[in-house]
């Protein structure tokens, strides 16, 4: 029983020291406390407001597979060619009419 406790102490010793290092470090901060407040407010605005309500993944929210995304981007790239084809067809139809 005693040896098992010693092992626990040896394992937890360094981990406890690291935790204590951080806890104590944060506790002793002066200007750091203000900075952490700024960081937390900033992250809440960024992720809780901007990302959630304004910055949706354009492709991810419209398509579920990579194939669909690739087809969409390819159609965007070839849109000028498609538009030109439509224009030529309309011109031809007008002439025939």
């Amino acid at each position: 029983m005693r040896s098992r406790n010693n092992i626990n102490l040896r394992i937890s010793g360094p981990v406890r020291r690291v935790i204590h290092f951080y806890v104590d470090g944060f506790r002793r901060m002066t200007v750091g406390k203000t900075l952490w407040k700024v960081i937390i407010i900033k992250l809440i605005i960024m992720f809780g407001v901007l990302k959630l309500f304004f910055f949706h993944d354009f492709l991810g929210s419209r398509f579920s597979t990579d194939k669909q995304k690739a087809d969409y981007v390819l159609s965007e790239l070839t849109r000028p060619v498609q538009n030109q084809k439509i224009m030529h067809k309309e011109e031809k139809d007008d002439r025939e009419f």
Partner: peptide, 18 residues
């Protein structure tokens, strides 16, 4: 800098995909 990554996905999706 993470805000730029938001913008890539939303405003610059063709570019991001490519």
């Amino acid at each position: 800098g993470i805000i730029m990554e938001f913008e890539f996905g939303t405003n610059w999706s063709n570019y991001s995909w490519m």
